[in-house]
Amino acid sequence: MLSDEQLFSAYQKLWINRSFSNQDHLSLKEKLTQAIQKDLQDEMTHPRVRKSPEVKYELAVQRIQNSNLIHSEQLALIDLYTKLLKNC
């Protein structure tokens, strides 16, 4: 099982340009959860062209699987995305 720090680091390797400014009061787990929820809701896209959470999930899983992350990092990120998709 990966630590929150390892999981957060793996996420940052995939999504290099994501910023987490103004979130200093949050734990790494909370920052990561918020970033993934934001991604699944496609909040960084104009409302008229947003994709569904299921489509965003599929795209994220593909990106994770095609990455150079080690297998345990890939599985942990996919697991977290899966858990958070259920809450969308």
Rank of each mutant, 00 (worst) to 15 (best):
Y57Q: 06
Y81F: 15
L59Y: 07
R63H: 12
N66F: 03
Y57T: 05
L75Y: 08
V61M: 00
L77E: 10
N68H: 11
T82A: 08
Y81M: 08
N87F: 00
K86V: 09
L80N: 13
I70T: 11
E58T: 10
D79Q: 15
S67R: 02
L75H: 12
E58S: 11
S72W: 03
Q65E: 15
N66P: 09
L75T: 13
I64G: 01
L77P: 07
A60G: 06
V55P: 06
L85E: 03
K86Y: 06
I78V: 14
V55M: 01
Q62E: 11
L84K: 09
L59N: 13
L59H: 12
I70A: 09
Q65M: 10
I70M: 10
L77T: 13
Q65K: 14
N87T: 13
L75N: 15
Y57A: 04
N68C: 03
S72K: 13
Y57F: 14
K86H: 08
A60Q: 04
L77R: 11
N66A: 12
N68P: 00
Q62V: 02
I78L: 00
L84S: 10
V55S: 03
L85N: 05
D79L: 09
L69Q: 06
K56Q: 08
V55L: 05
L80D: 10
Q65T: 14
A76V: 04
K86N: 09
D79K: 14
